[in-house]
């Protein structure tokens, strides 16, 4: 008897809560009827039970029949592009991590074990992160697509006249562009998760003698999270774009919103004094790149102080331009 209960449980646990009780009672009745049918009054053996359950078939399949609709995180329409993008992201990550490791070994062969551990650590963090964000992006696309499908049903009967026009060439989202951007983001994720040590001015005196870093080493761990977050949002955006397939006002709205969020995070970071290496100029002098008090020193100092402002302005122009560009492309479609 226990096996019957197990069977019923296996079927009903895969069904919506509201139907479980009802279907369970009905199934129990059915199984008892079937057992009665194949044995003398009220006496049946374990093998009878097994036979009956076999006839009813795999509980998973029975539950599928009760459910009849299938639910997807990423449906068959998007699945191929999803796998394609995952492959691209993973190969970029793999190659960049490998190359990063090689560079470190060439520059500093003594600490090869540390570099190796670094490589493992970045692999363990970067791959799941890339996987997660890519999946999330496509799942959002799937969700948007489902909502759209429901909207169409709501509009009533389908007519050939309702067919959406083929997107104008300029408004289509090209897979190659999106992939290039994803590669770009993935590369920077690797770069930043590897170490900020090499992000700076490389000093060569009879060969490589060190780096004067741009960023503040002490605070890097805090900022690292935000940097990765921003880059991940970038990858997510590209995935959503791919899922949409063409520029629409909704997509423009979405990208503008997410870019603005990234921008706000960036502004917080870049304008914080402790984000940048506070002793950058002193270190440059110590490394014999410039001499204190010279004209060159003042020029570099000026550039160093102005740079954050210019970076912010460039980024602002970039997101404004992206939104305008997307808007123009989406509008071309409406004509």
């Amino acid at each position: 008897m226990e096996m019957i209960e197990r069977y019923i449980y296996a079927v009903t646990q895969k069904l919506p809560q509201s139907q479980r009780e009802d279907i369970a009672v009905e199934l129990r009745g059915l199984i008892e009827d079937m057992l009665e049918d194949r044995s003398e009054k009220g006496r049946y053996s374990g093998s009878d039970i097994e036979e009956v359950l076999l006839e009813l078939g795999n509980p998973k399949e029975l539950a599928d029949k009760y459910r009849s609709t299938k639910k997807y995180l990423i449906g068959p329409e998007l699945f191929d592009s999803y796998v394609y993008i995952l492959k691209v992201v993973f190969s970029v990550l793999g190659i960049s991590i490998g190359v990063g490791f090689l560079i470190q070994v060439v520059l500093n062969p003594v600490n090869i074990l540390d570099h190796f551990i670094d490589m493992i650590v970045s692999s363990v963090t970067a791959f799941p992160m890339a996987f997660g964000w890519t999946t999330f992006g496509f799942a959002m696309g799937e969700l948007a697509g489902n909502v759209k499908r429901k909207d169409l049903q709501f509009e009533g009967e389908w007519k050939p006249a309702n067919l959406p026009p083929i997107p104008v060439e300029q408004s289509r989202i090209k897979r190659r562009d999106a992939v290039a951007s994803i590669v770009f983001y993935a590369f920077f994720i690797v770069l930043f998760s590897f170490s900020s040590d090499y992000l700076g001015i490389w000093v060569f005196h009879d060969g490589f003698s060190g780096v004067v870093p741009f960023l503040n080493d002490q605070k890097y761990a805090t900022y690292f999270v935000f940097i990765i977050l921003i880059l991940s949002i970038g990858i997510l955006n590209e995935c959503v774009k791919l899922a949409f397939g063409k520029w629409t006002y909704k997509l423009v709205l979405y990208t503008t919103l997410s870019n603005t969020i990234s921008m706000i995070v960036l502004l917080f970071m870049l304008s914080g004094a402790d984000f940048w290496n506070p002793t950058f100029m002193n270190e440059l002098v110590e490394a014999n790149v410039v001499t204190a008090g010279s004209d060159a020193y003042h020029t570099v100092d000026w550039i160093w102080n102005q740079a954050p402002l210019w970076i912010i302005i460039l980024l602002l122009i970039n997101i404004v331009w992206n939104s305008i560009d997307g808007f123009i492309r989406a509008r071309k479609n409406k004509k």
């Binding site: 279907i23 059915l30 006839e55 029949k65």
Partner: peptide, 20 residues
């Protein structure tokens, strides 16, 4: 059973979800 007697073989696993 009724359908079976009339030569229409249907598995309970198909019929029950169909009825619902």
């Amino acid at each position: 059973t009724m359908l079976g007697k009339n030569g229409i073989r249907v598995e309970p696993g198909t019929l029950y979800p169909l009825l619902r």
